[in-house]
Design a protein around this nucleic acid. Structure first.
Length: 306
DNA sequence: AATCGGCCCAACCGCTTTGAG
DNA sequence: CCTCAAAGCGGTTGGGCCGAT
């Protein structure tokens, strides 16, 4: 037995709202409010609509201060950041973006932002230069952070820990940044001449085994709290597997690495971006052996992935 | 100019959550 | 507690629009 319908489908209008219906709904709510009862509202407002339909129309389109149109770089970064941490909980994400609705964000993610992160070019329906040239992260976040030393901690020596914890790392953002520096086959870095990943001014570090492993350090995105995700990552020597490692979320101008490394295959990173599954269970050891300076980046009992 | 294919987004559907009685 | 109606929410759909041919 199915669920009882919320209203008599045969008596309600469906489909796009007319300007007259919009005006009626808007006027009624501005005059009387919703009355705490959406089911009764359409009748009171003289609308042949389902209460749920009225609610959706109001929340997504008619209510004051709704923002439509292009998302800013900052909004992109916030969406990515929150998606990485909480998944597709659009209403929560929308709560961080004043004027945006969950529906808007969901549509934007599904049609544009996800593709942008994955590096899939979106077809241009209209020539809107500022829209199509927009990058995922503000260019200011692409700058490298500090000179090379053997200690990861000291790479951010001017910074101090702010938010340790399993949710402190945004693999979607870090993964997206890594993907952007790989070539089309995703098995070589673009800058073959230097054999370095070139997001920011990535450094080559020696692993504990004595062989060289290319590592990128980056700072990506920023959220509404003024937080950034610091991360490291790179391509293992066989170019078969990427590793993404433990950036901590730090307050701008402060912070030290504080998270255990995570590594993913390229496919896993793509899957992560595609599915949006939060990453809390995928901590594994640092493949290079050089991460974790100061003993703050590795935890005992880490899961081995392979 | 006509047709086609693909993208976008408003709206719908139905499941889950909430809270009043 | 339990029940049930209403609200909230996220996934999905389909029509309109636009660019390509």
């Amino acid at each position: 037995m199915g669920r009882a319908p919320c209203c008599d489908k045969s008596k309600v209008k469906k489909g796009p709202w007319s300007p007259e219906e919009d005006a009626k709904l808007k006027e009624h709510i501005e005059k009387y409010g919703t009355g705490g009862n959406w089911i009764a509202l359409p009748q009171k407002a003289g609308l042949k609509r389902c209460g749920k339909s009225c609610r959706l129309r109001w929340l997504n389109y008619l209510r004051p201060n709704i923002k439509h149109g292009d998302f800013t770089e900052e909004e992109d970064a916030i969406i990515c950041s929150l998606f990485a941490r909480i998944g597709s909980r659009w209403s929560i994400i929308a709560a961080q973006l004043p004027g945006r609705t969950d529906n808007d964000i969901k549509n934007y993610w599904n049609t544009k932002l996800k593709k942008k992160i994955m590096g899939i070019p979106t077809p241009q329906r209209k020539i809107q230069p500022e829209k199509h040239q927009r990058q995922l992260f503000p260019s200011s976040f692409n700058a490298m952070i500090s000179p090379a030393t053997s200690s990861v901690g000291s790479r951010f020596s001017s910074q101090k820990t702010l938010l340790p914890g399993p949710d402190a790392f945004d693999p979607v953002i870090a993964g997206a940044a890594l993907l952007r520096v790989l070539d089309d086959d995703h098995n070589q870095v673009k800058d073959n001449s230097s054999s370095l990943l070139v997001f920011g001014d990535g450094q080559s570090c020696s692993s504990s085994g004595g062989s060289s492993t290319k590592i990128i350090y980056g700072r990506a995105a920023e959220n509404e709290l003024g937080l950034e995700t610091l991360f490291y990552g790179g391509l293992l020597e066989d170019h078969q597997k990427l590793f993404l490692g433990g950036g901590s979320r730090v307050e701008r101008g402060s912070g030290v690495w504080g998270e255990a490394p995570i590594d993913y295959t390229l496919e896993e990173i793509k899957q992560l971006i595609t599915t949006g599954s939060p990453c809390s269970s995928l901590f594994i050891g640092d493949p290079t052996g050089v991460i974790g300076g100061g003993g703050n980046a590795r935890a005992s009992g880490l899961m081995s992935y392979n």
